[in-house]
Computed example of a mutant assay.
Amino acid sequence: MDGSQVTMVVSVVGGVVGLIALTVAWSQMRIASAKTKLDLYNKRFNVYLAALEFHQCAGSGDGIKEKFDKLTQAYRESLFLFYDKDGIRKTLEKIQIAGFAILTHHIAKLDPNSAADLFKEFQTPAGDAYMGMEEDIRALEDQLKSYLSFNNVRGWTFF
């Protein structure tokens, strides 16, 4: 082989290696983008789970303080996860206000130092809040459909 043939082979090999590197970089970029979308999806779904779990334990009162704290955190995070125009934060605020009435009722029921009048005072608002919460959960589900729907998910492809 003379010098020009060696130069030609080295140039072709260098070009092929460059194309392989470009393909790997492109694939890594797509994988990182998919991971970011998955992380955002998980955060949004956790907001829904916090509201649903609070609603599920609101009737019995088991672990209600922890679930209320989780609901409050989800409400705060919703500011950064959803567009204002979708009304998700407002719905979560309604659920949180209702949840506070339910939480106060359960705390008054469990506290031996609270007067029976205090328990009765919060019983009606807590019952009304619990009944209204079902409607708010359904509204939240409708509002979250566009964020949590799998209809627009496309599988990973090489190109």
Score class of each variant (00 low, 15 high):
residue 3 G to P: 05
residue 4 S to E: 05
residue 6 V to T: 07
residue 8 M to T: 06
residue 10 V to F: 01
residue 11 S to H: 05
residue 12 V to C: 02
residue 14 G to I: 06
residue 14 G to D: 02
residue 20 I to A: 07
residue 24 V to F: 12
residue 26 W to G: 14
residue 29 M to K: 15
residue 29 M to G: 14
residue 33 S to T: 14
residue 40 L to E: 04
residue 40 L to F: 02
residue 41 Y to T: 01
residue 41 Y to M: 02
residue 44 R to A: 00
residue 46 N to I: 05
residue 47 V to T: 03
residue 53 E to N: 15
residue 55 H to V: 11
residue 58 A to M: 03
residue 59 G to F: 01
residue 63 G to Y: 02
residue 65 K to M: 06
residue 65 K to H: 11
residue 66 E to Y: 04
residue 67 K to A: 05
residue 68 F to T: 01
residue 70 K to C: 05
residue 71 L to A: 02
residue 72 T to R: 08
residue 72 T to I: 05
residue 73 Q to G: 10
residue 74 A to G: 01
residue 76 R to A: 15
residue 76 R to V: 13
residue 76 R to G: 12
residue 79 L to F: 09
residue 80 F to G: 07
residue 80 F to C: 09
residue 83 Y to I: 11
residue 86 D to W: 02
residue 87 G to Y: 07
residue 87 G to D: 04
residue 90 K to T: 11
residue 91 T to P: 03
residue 91 T to M: 02
residue 95 I to F: 00
residue 96 Q to Y: 11
residue 97 I to E: 06
residue 98 A to T: 09
residue 99 G to P: 01
residue 100 F to W: 13
residue 101 A to D: 09
residue 101 A to W: 08
residue 108 A to N: 12
residue 109 K to M: 11
residue 110 L to M: 14
residue 110 L to N: 14
residue 111 D to S: 02
residue 113 N to T: 13
residue 113 N to V: 14
residue 116 A to E: 15
residue 116 A to R: 14
residue 116 A to Y: 13
residue 117 D to A: 07
residue 118 L to C: 07
residue 118 L to W: 08
residue 120 K to V: 11
residue 121 E to R: 14
residue 121 E to W: 13
residue 123 Q to C: 07
residue 124 T to Q: 14
residue 124 T to F: 13
residue 126 A to N: 01
residue 127 G to D: 12
residue 129 A to D: 00
residue 133 M to C: 05
residue 134 E to H: 14
residue 135 E to Q: 14
residue 135 E to I: 13
residue 140 L to G: 00
residue 141 E to I: 06
residue 142 D to Y: 08
residue 146 S to K: 15
residue 148 L to M: 01
residue 151 N to W: 08
residue 151 N to Y: 10
residue 154 R to V: 00
residue 155 G to M: 03
residue 155 G to P: 03
residue 159 F to H: 12
